[in-house]
Amino acid sequence: MGGAMALTLAALAYPSMLGLSTVSSSQSRIIAQTQWGPLTEADRDFVVKVRAAGLWEYPLGQIGLQKGSTKGVKTASEHLVDGHAALDASCRKIAPMLNITLPNVASPQQVGFVNQLKGESGKQFDTDFANILRMTHGSIFNTIAKIRSTTKNSLVRALADQANDTVLDHITVMEKTGLVDFDQTIFNQTTPPKLPSSDLTPPAPPAGQPEVVLTPPPTATSTPLDLGALGGGTGGGTGAGLTPSPVPSAG
């Protein structure tokens, strides 16, 4: 990959681009008490990040099914569509329960990246597709682990479990394409540039706008969270039936 592409890849590695730039210096600050446990800024941001990830990786999976020129890329594309449809359904289930506003479009930087791959084809598309998605999934993998190990909210914890399994699967299928440049990918993951928050933050949906739904494929194997199995009050909250305090929107 050339210098320009390497710079683009490095920019995409910045973790907050996966949904929301940091809105507070204290991500551990509790912003709501819910029956599923306290909700912190980091918890809220994580739910938005998972939603935003699907808003650009799901369409990239659809593009990969059309443009991919190898079996490995097409298989990886199938996994993207399948996995992110299920993750998105989980986000849309728990967001209203936690009073979290979800975006309907990805960040400007993410949208620009999707447009970039739309303009590529053949070997260039396959290679950039595999390397960019391997890197971005590698970046969010660390965020998932941190949330899973620190959250006291049982809904967020369940989403982190699902996200962990999905992202690990996507990392694996990208590697199986045989196109990943590990040296470049790891460098871009660990040396992200500083980007304007306006490029990293998806806009809040206009009032009354219908919620975007990522439709599962006919052969879907991934499933959304079973909220009935989670129960309430298991995360250290103040009891079932408590309505969460208003939470700032994602935008």
Rank of each mutant, 00 (worst) to 15 (best):
H79F: 10
A89N: 05
L155D: 01
T190D: 14
T127I: 08
K74F: 01
Q124R: 14
I100E: 00
K176L: 15
N188P: 10
T127S: 11
A158S: 07
G122I: 14
S107M: 01
F125G: 02
L168D: 15
S77H: 10
C91M: 07
D82T: 09
R134N: 13
T143K: 12
E120A: 04
L155T: 06
L80C: 03
A76H: 05
D165S: 12
S197L: 09
K93Y: 07
T150D: 08
N115R: 11
K74C: 08
G138I: 07
I94D: 01
H170M: 12
I94G: 00
K123E: 15
G112P: 03
D183W: 14
T75S: 14
S149Q: 14
Q124P: 14
K176F: 12
A95E: 08
M97S: 10
E175N: 14
V81N: 05
P108W: 00
L200R: 07
A95Y: 05
F187L: 13
E78R: 12
Q109W: 06
N164F: 11
M97A: 10
P202S: 02
L102Y: 00
T143S: 13
Q184M: 12
T172N: 15
F141Y: 15
F113N: 00
D128Y: 12
N142F: 14
A106Y: 00
F182T: 13
D128R: 13
L80N: 00
P108Y: 01
T166H: 07
Q124N: 13
T191Y: 10
G138E: 02
N104T: 09
L102I: 00
A95C: 04
L195A: 04
V73M: 05
N115Q: 14
